[in-house]
Amino acid sequence: MWDWNTAREGLPVVLHGFGITLLATVLGSVVAMVLGLLIAVLRRAPTRWVTVPVRIVVEFVRSTPVMIQLFAVWVLVPGLDPLTIGIAVLGIHYAMYTSEVYRAGIDAVPQGQWEAAVALSLPRGRVWRAVILPQAVRKVVPALGNYVISMFKETPFLSVITVQEMVHEANEYGSVHFAYLEAFTLAAAIFLVASYPTSMLMRRLEKRLAQ
């Protein structure tokens, strides 16, 4: 049955795991945002020598489960710290989705913007940075935010490669103290408490960008 003492003693352990979860989510998101943007831009490259290989890699990564990718890298690249692997794999995996989101945003920028930029002879890099991306990204921030939240909820996968994220820690505490109920309830509660302010933050950001 539920024991408050066990729960109180377990809290610091689970919270420590939550720190790792948060770290993985934040860094993984940064990888996903930056890499996704890069992929989206490369898929618009003027030559097939770039667009085709990029598309193949995207399809490959997207069609394998993230769990398999975690194991594969863990086994094939020994010596790397599991958390680093976890961040990289999650980030790369999600970059495939964010690249689609960026792509939709880029496609939504009217053709006239490209044409005006060409008519001014702006160099291609400048067209992307100053004209297209600011307009494209602004439109897709809410969609990107959703992927951050779903990555956050997928961090427990990292426990399979021994990353000591929150669910891993809860599981361990639960098995040692035979207190699974308390441990997992705590973990669930923390997920809940953490996602509320995150979604509030998202909404605020959305509103600001909509102006």
Binding site: P110, G112, Q113, E115, A116, A117, A130, V131, P134, Q135, R138
Partner: peptide
């Protein structure tokens, strides 16, 4: 359609 850059 003018095509001004709305972000500037």
């Amino acid at each position: 359609q003018f095509n001004l850059f709305p972000n500037m």
